[in-house]
Design a binder for these strands. Structure first.
Lengths: 206, 206
DNA sequence: CCTACCGATCGGTAGG
DNA sequence: CCTACCGATCGGTAGG
């Protein structure tokens, strides 16, 4: 129970909001997967019966849609914010990378569900998410192309596959990030940026 | 039906081996997830009833264990083969990268199930797989450290987090690889190696 | 590999 | 948010 809640008269618990339900669904979908989470599991997490959830949401699919929509919004916000800045392509790319890291660190459950459970979305919603991911990737391709034009990114870099590689490093954070880890979000982003921008081999000829 | 099979007398189908069942389980677990695949789904895939599968395997968990064990064996083989070669750390790292790409391309279903469904393994098996993944990562850390000692990898590279980044790029292939794509396994490996070894920014000072 | 089942659990509903 | 359910589906078994 949070410090701001008033203790109920006898052994009860505060009523849950719809947002509480969606947040709890994010936690369980992230940990056990969509198909590995039952409505009764979710009820337990919230201290109520599975059947009681239907006064908050129409069904289990609706919860998946909402959790993933939240994840999509967070990631989309990074692209929008980076596009609003004026600066070199390298600066914009760095902003995209740092923004992505912060979304993962600040919203790990929604990010995990977004990345791993989208395939279980109803078809119409799934298509939307695929389109959004394509647009996200396209933003990376675009900024890489601009970086090549500006002379800051090597001319022999392929924007298409390089966008995939950069997003590979970023998305993998969703798998390995643990809040209890020793690195802060800023430290992780710094190390990622060094790896992405600089590679690892000394005096590479490219 | 494969070309080597003899057509059954009337509308039947050839009996399935245990290996057929495990291979089909890999296909479905990779596509729909472990919890998204029922024994009846798997029976359909093989042209038999779900209940008939129990003459081949003890249960659904056993199938997950076997598919993932196959994946683990393939990846482990790459580390063993790379360690047998004598050469510079850079050569060994390149062999590890190319070997990993080939396992993903040649055994995509087992690789996918290994990466995405291991968390649903019975606890004892899950622990084994976690240990195997730790050893796999340790092999990368070790070869990176050797590369630094040999002067071929920059001294300010952190072997621990860099191993994670390299494996991020490699493991993401499991998500985006499509056999119908335009790049061959060798081309993909070449591009990955260029990205990992060289970075993307021109004239980086490191 | 099929027939014929089993108990447990699933997502979900009616009515309060 | 609970009581009291529903039909469908789940993993799995006995016996052939």
């Amino acid at each position: 129970m949070s410090a701001t809640e008033v203790a109920p008269v006898s052994g009860g618990s505060a009523p849950r909001s719809r947002d509480d339900v969606v947040a709890a669904a994010g936690r369980l979908f992230a940990k056990r997967g969509f198909h590995g989470t039952s409505m009764r599991d979710l009820g337990d997490e919230l201290g109520m019966l599975g059947s009681s959830l239907y006064s908050h949401v129409r069904g289990k699919n609706e919860l998946l849609v909402e959790v993933i929509a939240k994840g999509a919004e967070f990631f989309n916000g990074v692209v929008v914010a980076a596009a609003e800045q004026t600066g070199s392509a390298i600066d914009e790319l760095r902003n995209l990378v740092y923004g992505h890291v912060h979304v993962v660190v600040d919203h790990i459950d929604e990010a995990r569900t977004f990345l791993f459970e989208s395939r279980f979305l109803p078809e119409a919603n799934r298509r939307q998410i695929v389109e959004m991911r394509d647009a996200y990737e396209a933003a990376y391709r675009k900024v890489i192309s601009r970086g090549i034009a500006e002379g800051d990114i090597a001319a022999d870099v392929d924007p298409g596959i390089t966008a995939i590689f950069i997003l590979s490093v970023l998305n993998a954070l969703i798998r390995w990030y643990r809040p209890s880890g020793e690195r802060t979000a800023a430290e992780i982003a710094d190390e990622m940026w060094a790896f992405i921008s600089g590679g690892i081999v000394t005096g590479v000829s490219r």
